[in-house]
Write a protein that binds this DNA or RNA. Structure first.
Lengths: 221, 221, 221, 221
DNA sequence: TATGAATGAGTCTTCATTCAT
DNA sequence: AATGAATGAAGACTCATTCAT
């Protein structure tokens, strides 16, 4: 079995049986990273457990000591990344209190910078590509990440509206989506079109996009 | 047609109504449609030729009469759709001459409407999900579709700038991308988040997004 | 196994004799033998990997742990046998120095005996039957085996001529071929005509053939 | 069905349903020739009906108008060639009456010349390669061709012995085989070792071989 | 007679997963 | 905990053969 009886259940409230067994050391993380790389490069189906193992520096069978199946590995991977992103959302939300429009500018700047981090975008791309086959995973991702991010953004926009910084007739939802759109576009396209060397300054380009957008949102004198 | 009525059916015994008419000509298209459906639903790797065949109403082996391999089917499928889209690009480009800003509004409206056509969006989604494994295909798609669309759009924006309808300091490339972004976002998300019943009026939402965007682009009095 | 035998079997219950010992080292050889049998019996194309596996006592997939493809298995098989034969050639060549005619008689005797070893002849037969489809393999076999054997034989005959044991006007090449011919004939026919029970003493028959031949070669008093 | 009821069986003793349906024209022969070429080139299993059809200039389905199956085609092919060879055997047998040794020399010469006719040798090669899978066919070939040829040859040798042209202690069977061996060897090797350009005068070589052999058989003064 | 279209039955090969140590 | 060896289940692709005209 994959789940050993906990070694010392004498008094301790038996740990609520972790979904995937963890070791003290870094193995699971290494595996997850390797899996992310392979899944992103080849797609979930085409990625081979053997390659993941090799990339993680262990044997194929060893993966199964930590994750009961390929699908479980995918789930673990997404959940792991979700945690990371979720935290960033929090930070983001806090920043908005004072000056919403400024906050949005900051977020935009930050986002523009982050685009160079390939791995950050790997997960959403992965989610998109598996959404057909594993809708529950996509659903999970949506509720845990996308909806939260959108919620934070919409709160920010609403704040902007009530402070008079953003025109009142702007539809909040639409604005939030318009904000995320360019980001996603750049994210996906950057990867899909790896070869396109023409795109010589992606960050500046994104920044421009947000400028246009915010310009459209702003209250006019 | 392949089957002429028998030249002299003396008594016209009505041909025993063939269970299935053969339509060699229509076959490839039917197969491509079935493949698109399966590829989109399950992903390229997970889609089974047998299922595609079943969906097309033929036997597995029959597919190979028209396409030499699964990959070839994928390529044919993308190329077929590329043609369709490419033409729409042309139309679109012509429309822009007179009033660029108006043209962009029209395009936005059209695009918003088209979003309900699930199949239209299936192809880009598919391209994204296979881009890791078959970069050449993604490349093909980029050069034949995306770049053309972007070119047309940028031409439109430039026209708008030179006519004074769009502010001169706007970066053309950025504007074009900002225009495509929301579309892509909605496209992907609509599918990925199939379950989201909350999105009760996507077209209106998109329309709103474009309103914001165009507002940001427009020359202010 | 996942469940260890209890660590201290007080009475030393002898391990329940594993049904099958694993012998990773012996495997390839076993597979090659099985393959030879199947290829010979049914021909390369008609032989099924599954049957080879069964004959080797393993699963179909296990073959692929040792040989990447059916063709590779064929190649390995031939190369393995080539090695064996090549060594015998060496021995044979050395024996000839002293008394060539005697050496040839010995070889003939040896060959006649070897004919009963079905497997020895299986390989050339196999090579012949695949030569149409895989000429490179036949070529490989020719250069590594046939040509060497012929070379050794021709050297022997030449030695015989220079020693006056064989008539000088004899064509060396022709003699060598005349020597090999009956052998090959018997080899192939023995198999093809498996059913022929009439052939009640093949060894003696071959011996006779060589007698005739050598008689034709010998210097007459 | 493949065998139509005979069109007018009114009184005529119904022809004993020919094994394979024949047309008045040359179709079946063309098909057989094409099949021989393909079978020889690729082996029976690997040869594709489609290729045979193409080589015969007809459609795949058309073959089935003449031969009910691939195996039947093989059988027909062999039977057709058997007929040809059988006749030559007869001729050969008659020639021997007068001067057996001379007859054998003639046969040898003839055989040496025939070796250039690739197709003549294709059939025995084919028989060898399929003998594992279809022993009955090999059996058929043996009884109808090989045994007859051997019989004729042995009769010839016996005649030679009784006339004092051939040494009495020679084993007839062995001598016959020694006669056929080189022929077969050259036949097979010529094909297997297609590339060998070194063999610059095969006919002369064979002739030499027979010289040696006959020399060994001949009665010494 | 002739054939383009179609298919069922197979075969090789792959790979996630398990076993035995 | 770790792994080399093994396998069952599955999928792409092929091809002899049949069908409908």
């Amino acid at each position: 079995m994959h789940y050993m009886a906990s070694p010392k259940p004498t008094k301790a409230r038996p740990r609520p049986a972790p979904k995937w067994r963890r070791r003290a050391d870094a193995r699971p993380e290494e595996i997850v990273e390797a899996a992310l790389a392979e899944f992103t490069a080849r797609g979930f189906e085409a990625a081979r457990m053997e390659d993941i193992a090799k990339a993680a520096g262990i044997s194929k069978a060893a993966i199964y000591l930590y994750f009961p199946s390929k699908l479980a590995l995918l789930e673990a991977l997404i959940e792991a990344k979700v945690g990371t992103l979720a935290q960033q959302m929090q930070t983001l939300a806090l920043a908005g209190h004072a000056d919403p429009l400024m906050a949005m500018r900051m977020i935009a700047t930050m986002a523009a910078h982050r685009l160079s981090d390939v791995n950050l975008l790997a997960v959403p791309r992965l989610v998109i590509s598996i959404s057909g086959r594993f809708p529950e995973i996509a659903e999970y991702y949506r509720t845990h990440i996308v909806d939260k991010a959108r919620g934070a953004l919409e709160a920010l926009i609403d704040a902007g509206k009530s402070k008079g910084a953003i025109r009142a007739e702007i539809d909040t939802k639409a604005a939030a989506r318009a904000f995320i759109g360019p980001l996603l576009f750049e994210a996906l396209w950057t990867h899909v079109l790896k070869g396109e060397t023409a795109l010589n300054d992606p960050q500046k380009l994104i920044q421009h996009q947000f400028d246009i957008l915010l310009n459209g949102l702003e209250q006019r004198a």
